[in-house]
């Protein structure tokens, strides 16, 4: 299958920029996740690729063919792009089979071409073919929507928050089924979502859109471990910040001397630590600092502590710990950081 390449894409609506100078490429057979808050422009990006909207400037190429620029705008039906909408958007007047074959030629529609195969691909029983969309659960509807999008063999698959309307339980299961089906089909896909877990778990690469700009695009782990800005760090997951002094590969802060990921820096920095990096023990270990437990929130699989470091500036430190041994509020504990941390030259604005 073909890949996608976007260059300097800009789109505004009524004077307000929705997308600004976005460039990205997607390699054949990979799934890229675009993470963004609502209003970040992620849906606009998808709609521009699909051809539902026309860019102000920049270029979009699908499989090497230029489909959109400031002069060209190929109609959506000619782009060969599969689109899975937020709630599946199954045609309510058609059966599951008719939905799946909707994008095929008339003769293939009659022959129920590939219906069974596609249902199997998305992990649904073949008997579902005759059902109406109303008889399916939300997750099943999404799988049928995926099957429908895959049926004509699109060059590119676009998934617009496909799991956001599902319950937590269904969501995980549907995600897995969809990811497996896309892999099996060998499709090139773009998934947009506002859900960090979803982006990180599904995307082979993850891009973050902030206020219409592509802030970072990298492998999920790199995005989580080494976000390019404090805002991004906060957006991708929970983060704790300390002021510190960087000296080469090390940084000194309230949590002690920590090793830095990435290139060495010097001077006053803002140190970012993920709460699960902070290890909490009842007794001091080498390099640990003393803290008092202020508050405990229990989540079942884990727990979040709010702590105050003894001798440091006032302010809470958040640590996420395994829920088996939770200290009492008010008790003394020792904190140590596991793994590398990130330092930013600019201080975090409140």
């Amino acid at each position: 299958m073909a890949n996608l390449s976007i260059q300097n894409l800009t789109k505004s609506f009524g004077g307000a920029p929705l997308l600004h100078d976005v460039s990205l490429t997607v390699d054949p057979g990979t799934l890229i996740a675009i993470l963004g808050a609502s209003g970040s422009g992620k849906t606009t990006l998808l709609r521009l690729i699909a051809g539902f909207e026309r860019p102000d400037s920049g270029e979009i190429r699908i499989g090497g063919e230029l489909v959109a620029s400031d002069t060209i705008c190929k109609r959506p039906e000619l782009r060969g792009v599969g689109y899975v909408a937020q709630e599946g958007a199954l045609f309510p007047h058609l059966s599951v089979a008719d939905n799946i074959t909707f994008g095929l030629k008339r003769a293939e529609r009659r022959a129920r071409h590939r219906v069974a195969e596609l249902l199997e691909l998305v992990g649904l029983p073949g008997a579902y073919a005759k059902r109406g969309p109303q008889e399916l659960s939300g997750g099943e509807q999404q799988r049928v929507a995926l099957a429908r999008a895959l049926a004509p063999g699109p060059k590119l698959l676009l998934l617009d928050e496909p799991f956001s309307a599902l319950d937590a339980g269904l969501r995980a299961e549907t995600r897995e089924a969809v990811a497996a089906a896309i892999r099996a089909a060998g499709a090139t896909a773009i998934l947009v979502t506002h859900d960090q877990d979803e982006a990180l778990s599904m995307g082979q690469r993850v891009g973050v859109l902030q206020n219409g700009r592509l802030a970072q695009i990298s492998a999920p782990e790199a995005l989580y471990r080494q976000p390019v800005s404090p805002e991004l760090a906060n957006f991708v997951g929970a983060a704790v910040f300390f002021p510190g002094q960087a000296i080469g590969p090390k940084v000194i802060c309230a949590l002690g001397a920590l090793s830095l990921a990435g290139p060495a820096v010097h001077g006053s920095v803002e140190v970012m630590v993920r709460p699960e990096q902070i290890k909490v023990t009842n007794a001091p270990v080498p390099g640990s600092v003393r803290a008092i437990v202020n508050h405990v929130t229990f989540y079942g699989h884990d727990a979040v502590l709010r702590l105050a470091i003894v001798g440091a500036e006032p302010g809470d430190v958040t640590a996420r710990i395994f829920s088996q041994s939770i200290p009492e509020p008010g008790s003394d504990v020792w904190l140590a950081v596991e793994g590398d941390v990130v330092a930013y030259a600019e201080p975090v604005s409140a």
């Binding site: 051809g51 109609r75 959506p76 039906e77 782009r79 958007a89 999008a149």
Partner: peptide, 9 residues
């Protein structure tokens, strides 16, 4: 939109 992406004018 879905219908258009599936090749319909």
């Amino acid at each position: 939109e879905t219908a258009r992406s599936l090749g319909n004018s």
